[in-house]
Design a protein around this nucleic acid. Structure first.
Length: 105
DNA sequence: TCATTGGCTATCA
DNA sequence: CTGATAGCCAATG
């Protein structure tokens, strides 16, 4: 299983109504410095339907980027109950899906 | 091979 | 609060 597949499989574990950060995913993978590569892996995601890549945001609660545009990302998150204000998830710490809750496929 | 490009993070002023 | 800085990984050409 290559890097991209691993990242995507972890992303699929994020429950609806929660989010995680590129850094959290990277931490689970063993190295916080993988954060950027994680972002790239999500970007290269070929099946955006099955993979909720919109549930991955910046470590400080800012939205981050999205293939379909940030507005679309925000819209999707709101539709799942995430509260966003000034391009930030409001209760970030509370809705954060932590690395300790992830598991290998 | 080397250079570039990001959906990044942490730290300091 | 905003900006600048410095790391830095995987894919791509």
């Amino acid at each position: 299983m290559d890097f991209d597949e691993l990242v995507l499989s972890l992303t699929k574990q994020i429950p609806k109504g929660k989010v995680t950060s590129y850094g959290e995913l990277a931490r689970f993978l063993g190295d916080i410095k993988l954060a950027r590569a994680v972002g790239q892996a999500l970007k290269r995601n070929s099946e955006p339907i099955k993979i909720p890549c919109h549930r991955v945001v910046c470590s400080d609660g800012r939205i981050g980027g999205y293939n379909g545009g940030i507005s679309e990302k925000i819209r999707l998150l709101r539709s799942e109950g995430i509260v966003i204000r000034d391009n930030r998830v409001q209760n970030f710490k509370e809705v954060l899906f932590r690395a300790s809750e992830m598991r290998l496929p």
